[in-house]
């Protein structure tokens, strides 16, 4: 058996999670998180906050809850069930930073938290900035050059 044949054989005998079931779970849990967020946003707007202020306050609330749930150990369990449903919303971003902070705090505030806080979130920040720079470039070309 060569490497390619073995890889093919391994694929045959390795069970995989159902893609459809996974997407359904992500849709339901992610949907619930976003519905709760929308509910809070609507409530804040009804309290006479401007749309921008309400969105800012909402983010603080969502991040706060995600960090608390991470600390209590619930978010990782929910994430194992929901997959992208908990990964994609801003709560997932908060979880990635909070979990790294908790894990590396024991290694000190400089070499632990300081160096490793963005271990997971780092790529999101870096490539988020890079892609928004490209989006800005396209926006500039479309609006001012053409």
């Amino acid at each position: 058996m060569n490497n390619q044949e073995y890889a093919k054989y391994v694929k045959e005998v390795t069970p995989a999670k159902s893609l459809w079931l996974n997407m359904l779970k992500a849709f339901v849990i992610g949907g619930i998180i976003c519905t709760i967020a929308q509910f809070i946003l609507n409530y804040l707007i009804s309290m006479d906050f401007s749309k921008e202020d309400a969105a800012g306050i909402l983010n603080i609330i969502l991040i706060g809850f995600a960090v608390i749930f991470t600390g209590l150990g619930y978010y990782s369990k929910l994430g194992n069930f929901a997959g992208a449903g908990t990964l994609v919303p801003i709560t997932g971003f908060a979880n990635s930073i909070a979990s790294a902070t908790i894990e590396y705090k024991k290694e000190g505030y400089v070499f632990g938290v300081g160096c490793k806080i963005f271990t997971i979130a780092g790529p999101v920040i870096l490539y988020g900035i890079v892609s928004s720079w490209f989006a800005g470039l396209i926006y500039y070309i479309v609006n001012y050059v053409i």
């Binding site: 996974n22 990964l87 909070a98 908790i102 894990e103």
Partner: peptide
């Protein structure tokens, strides 16, 4: 892998 509190999925295998 990842920090313990990170919410990601484990594969079945």
């Amino acid at each position: 892998r990842f920090p313990l509190g990170y919410g990601c999925q484990r594969k079945q295998c």
